[in-house]
Amino acid sequence: MNDPTRRILMGRIHGAFGVRGELKLESFSDPPEAVFRYRPWVLRDAQGRERELDGGRGRSTAKGIVLQLPGVDDRDAAEALRGSELWVPRGALPPPKPGEYYWVDLEGLRVVNTAGIDFGTVSHLFSTGANDVLVARGERERMIPFIEPDYVTSVDFDAGVVTVDWDADF
């Protein structure tokens, strides 16, 4: 959780916005415009090449988040960045509020049920719209609604364990 070298995926570029080099950005922050608060940005292109960005800025519009990057001055340059990802160091994010978690901090924690049965580790989480779902991978994959305290009874970062009230046969 406190690994200063770990980076968090904060957004993905979906192409050009207009003709002046602006970019359409899918932001993974909540709210979406919060992505502009976290620095430094690292841009990873589709080939995996990375570069740290300095001086990028953006705004929220009725059509979504728009990003302007230094050196990207026309539509062709913007289109060339389609599919690139925007990353920030984990340490750039503020500490979560009590009882809240960054999904990335949960990844890799052991998952056990209240009977002590090991379900493996947290692979990832995703949102269904109704609730978030924790995916535990061990001898098989389990999808557990991330609803506290009904199904997720505790998260212990010191012990590296998420305890769930979930039947081993599900």
Rank of each mutant, 00 (worst) to 15 (best):
R7L: 15
M143Q: 09
W87H: 15
L9Q: 15
V42Y: 14
R110G: 01
W103E: 14
V155N: 13
V164S: 04
R137K: 12
D169G: 05
V35D: 02
L81S: 07
G11E: 01
V164N: 02
P70E: 03
L9N: 12
A115W: 13
F170Y: 12
Y38A: 07
Q68V: 12
A168N: 05
D30N: 12
I144Q: 02
L109W: 00
A62Y: 09
T153Q: 14
L53Q: 14
L86E: 02
S60L: 12
V122W: 00
R137V: 03
E26M: 04
G21T: 01
R57S: 15
L93I: 08
L69Y: 06
R140S: 07
S154W: 04
R110S: 02
A46G: 10
P96Q: 11
G56H: 03
G56Y: 03
R75T: 03
T114H: 05
A136K: 01
T114W: 10
L25R: 02
E26N: 07
I117D: 15
E22M: 02
N2W: 11
R110T: 09
A159Y: 05
W41L: 06
Y38L: 05
N131S: 11
F146L: 12
H124V: 12
D167K: 09
E22K: 00
L23C: 04
M143K: 04
V19R: 10
V104I: 13
V162K: 01
L93M: 09
F126C: 07
V162P: 00
Y102R: 06
P95D: 13
I8S: 13
L93D: 05
G120E: 06
D54I: 12
L69E: 05
V19C: 08
G99S: 08
R12K: 15
P145L: 10
Q68A: 13
Y151Q: 14
V112A: 02
G108W: 08
A130N: 09
L43R: 09
A78P: 01
F36R: 04
R7C: 14
G11T: 02
R59Y: 13
E139W: 07
E33C: 11
Y101D: 10
W103H: 06
F146G: 01
R82W: 03
R142C: 04
V72S: 00
V164R: 01
N113C: 07
I147N: 03
D167Q: 07
D76Y: 05
A115E: 08
L9Y: 14
W103I: 13
P40M: 13
V35I: 15
P95G: 10
G160W: 06
D105K: 05
F119P: 00
V66E: 04
R82Q: 12
V164M: 06
L86G: 02
W87A: 07
L43Q: 11
E79P: 03
F126W: 15
V152C: 00
I65T: 05
P4D: 08
E85P: 03
L43Y: 13
R110I: 01
G64E: 01
D3I: 11
G108L: 13
